[in-house]
Design a protein around this nucleic acid. Structure first.
Length: 647
RNA sequence: GCCGUUGUAGCUCAGGGGUAGAGCACUUCCUUGGUAAGGAAGAGGUCGUGAGUUCAAUUCUCAUCAACGGCUCCA
């Protein structure tokens, strides 16, 4: 190889030689001018680079456009710098925190000092950003020594940047400058600001500096930007569509659940239709669990404080729980149960257990109450009273992995039937830097973590591992799902626990007649009925599949003359375990159909003179317009075919 | 808990220092209508709650409660 040349390998495998000093955009230009105009960044040996940075001697190379995740995030990161530049020119003296790209846009954390920045200020900032973008200032990368960097921000008076600098090693510090604005930044950035054509600031929030609530709270400004106004329009349209799926909105419209200030915040009231959905889900899971060898138990809503002292929950969460309930005369302390497991441990202890009894799988739809900070409450996804589809599997050491795998299968089955195709399986481990947060021995933790890692590997699952997310008594496998607005929630969870059996002194008698300690697996495929229903509503946009729909069939007589036949049909449907309502209102058929459509009822049966005469029903499926006319038996058979799939 | 926004009829929302309005829903009447909103009349609110300023507060101030967007937390 000539010393004045460098080699890049393109994604198609071809290798090209270029003169030294060639940049990413130069490479793009040799492919096509149009491409060079579109491209936002490049990937060099797996790292995202600036387009105007000289390439290394040898690299695998890929151009990143808007369609590439790396391109988008570079674009948004640069937009964050543009936001900072605009803010600095409009509000001199502000101090800057950090400003990264996020999944759907970017933000910048700002210390505005005494000024209270509000969304009223968005317009002027957006305008400023647009005019700055139009200047087409290029993003200039500059490697700088730590001392120089410190001097710069000391002079500028930005304590946050100085704090960030302290954590960085000399020799790895870079500045980026566009126009009048210079920021400490690792990069990369798009070539220049002119590519940012459409900008929208979305909302504003408080955010603790470095995510620590002991630190000062900065003002976080969220925004999105796009290479064209059309893209922005489309994005805003999608956001609008997502808001229509919001379970809080649909819950109200479809009369599924409500809240009452008088009952208390975070305490959902299930209306008849919502309760029906929940009920059907419970029946479904119960059936699955019976097949999988679970037995059902029932435990009370309160338990003696000592129970939770034994389990460790009182020490860990006692201060952040509802206060104990006192008996009137004796002053004994009872807690609203925040967990079912201690109760289930006592059921285990109700009699001596043999190794032949294990695994023992105790299941309960157990309602628990937890004090959640009021700023945390959120529709049905974060509440203070909720029902877990809980079960605790007590098993021998040698059964743990197998049981764990069976639970995974159950969870996957549930997700499959309910259509949750997109989920993340997250292995939540102990935070090695903060062991005081947890109870139990290192050996127990190691065994538990090992069991989860092996079980998921043997199932061939794609997982992500997140240290620090474990429960205080054990590691977990969590199934995370996104809501309509892109927020991630935990649904199913499976946890291996060597600690509670120890604390409750659970034992079983082995084949050798000596005593052994069982292992517990906590698991909840739905997680909580509340959260699961919430995500389910958003997932299907309120269009429940037939088996879950609270009202499966709307019987719509064309006039009151056909009431009798309507009732006859309804009683036949009821006999066949199909849920139906008759719209008896003094309204025209068009109106009845519209209302049934809006209520997202899967089937409508229109009955008039023709149907009465031939003893048939005119079937109309939700969202599909006029359908065929069937005999009643044929209609019931049609429904049953569909319902059998989940029976 | 923290930062910001919001709070008017069952729902969605308009209004604004002189004690309130629309559409939908609801009730009654007319209409008996064939595949996404038939017509008319009526009823419904101490403008989240408490205090302050004012001759006068739903409107302005403060506090408080709740909801919303985030942050922190999440057994």
């Amino acid at each position: 190889m000539n010393h004045s040349e460098l080699i890049v390998q393109l994604p198609d495998g071809s290798r090209r030689n270029y003169p030294n000093g060639t940049t990413g955009v130069d490479v793009a230009r040799t492919i096509s001018e149009g491409l060079a105009r579109q491209v936002l960044a490049c990937e060099v040996n797996g790292e995202v680079w600036d387009l105007n940075r000289a390439l290394p001697a040898e690299s695998t190379f890929r151009l990143l456009k808007w369609e590439d995740q790396g391109g988008k995030s570079t674009f948004w990161h640069s937009s964050a710098h543009l936001l900072a530049e605009a803010l600095e020119s409009l509000y001199p003296g502000i101090q800057l925190g950090i400003g990264p790209a996020i999944e759907q846009g970017f933000y910048y954390d700002i210390d505005f000092g005494d000024y209270s920045f509000s969304s009223d200020d968005f317009e002027v900032v957006e305008k400023k950003m647009q005019s700055l973008a139009a200047t087409g200032a290029s993003f200039e990368r500059q490697e700088i020594s730590k001392a120089e960097a410190m001097a710069y921000f000391t002079k500028k008076g930005d304590p946050y940047k100085l704090e960030l600098l302290e954590g960085l090693a000399d020799g790895q510090i870079t500045f980026y400058t566009q126009g009048q604005f210079t920021d400490l930044c690792r990069g990369p950035h798009i070539p220049d600001t002119s590519k940012i054509k459409a900008i929208k600031l979305l909302n504003i929030a408080g955010a603790y500096w470095r995510g620590n609530e002991k630190n000062k709270q900065l003002t976080r400004i969220y925004g999105v930007s796009f290479p064209s106004a059309k893209d922005l329009e489309q994005h805003l349209h999608l956001l609008e569509e997502a808001r229509k799926r919001d379970h809080r909105k649909l819950g109200k419209e479809l009369e599924l659940f409500t809240f009452s200030e008088k009952v208390g915040m975070g305490l959902p009231l299930w209306l008849p239709k919502g309760a029906m959905v929940r009920e059907v889900l419970e029946q479904f899971l119960r059936r699955q669990q019976v097949r999988a060898g679970y037995v059902q138990v029932v435990t009370p809503h309160i338990g003696h404080k000592e129970l939770y002292q034994t389990s460790g929950h009182w020490d860990k969460y006692g201060q952040d729980s509802f206060r104990p309930i006192l008996t009137p005369h004796e002053g004994e302390e009872y807690l609203l149960k925040p967990m079912n497991c201690p109760h289930h441990c006592e059921i285990y202890k109700a009699k001596p257990r043999s190794y032949k009894d294990l695994p023992l799988r105790l299941a309960e739809f157990g309602t628990v109450y937890r004090y959640e900070q009021h700023g945390e409450l959120h529709g049905l996804t974060r509440v203070r009273g909720f029902t877990q589809d809980d079960a605790h599997l007590f098993c021998r050491d040698d059964q743990v992995k197998d049981e764990f795998k069976k639970v995974i299968s159950l969870v996957l089955k549930v997700f499959d039937v309910l259509g949750f195709e997109k989920y993340t399986a997250q292995i939540s481990l102990r935070d090695p830097a903060n062991r005081t947060k947890y109870i139990g021995t290192d050996e127990a933790w190691a065994k538990a973590e090992q069991a989860i890692i092996e079980a998921t590997a043997e199932m061939g699952m794609q997982t992500v591992t997140v240290p620090g997310e474990a429960a205080f008594y054990g590691p977990k496998l969590d199934f995370m799902v996104h809501d309509a607005l892109g927020r991630s929630w935990q649904l199913g969870t499976i946890q291996v626990d060597y600690n509670l059996p120890e604390r409750f002194d659970l034992t079983y008698v082995g084949a050798d007649n000596s005593r052994y300690r069982p292992v517990m697996i906590h698991r909840a495929p739905f997680g909580s009925m509340e959260r699961f229903v919430a995500l389910l509503i958003e997932h299907c946009a309120g269009n429940f599949p037939l088996w879950l729909a609270p009202e499966q069939v709307a019987i719509l007589p064309i006039s009151e003359k056909f009431q009798d036949f309507a009732q006859e049909i309804q009683s036949m449907l009821t006999t066949a375990d199909i849920r139906s309502t008759i719209d008896q209102r003094d309204e025209k058929i068009g109106r009845k159909i519209r209302d049934a459509e809006v209520q997202k009822i899967p089937f409508m049966l229109i009955i008039g003179e023709k149907e009465v005469e031939s003893r048939t029903v005119a079937v109309r499926r939700h969202g599909q317009g006029q359908g065929e006319t069937l005999g009643i038996e044929a209609f019931v058979a049609l429904l049953n075919t569909e319902l059998d799939a989940v029976r």
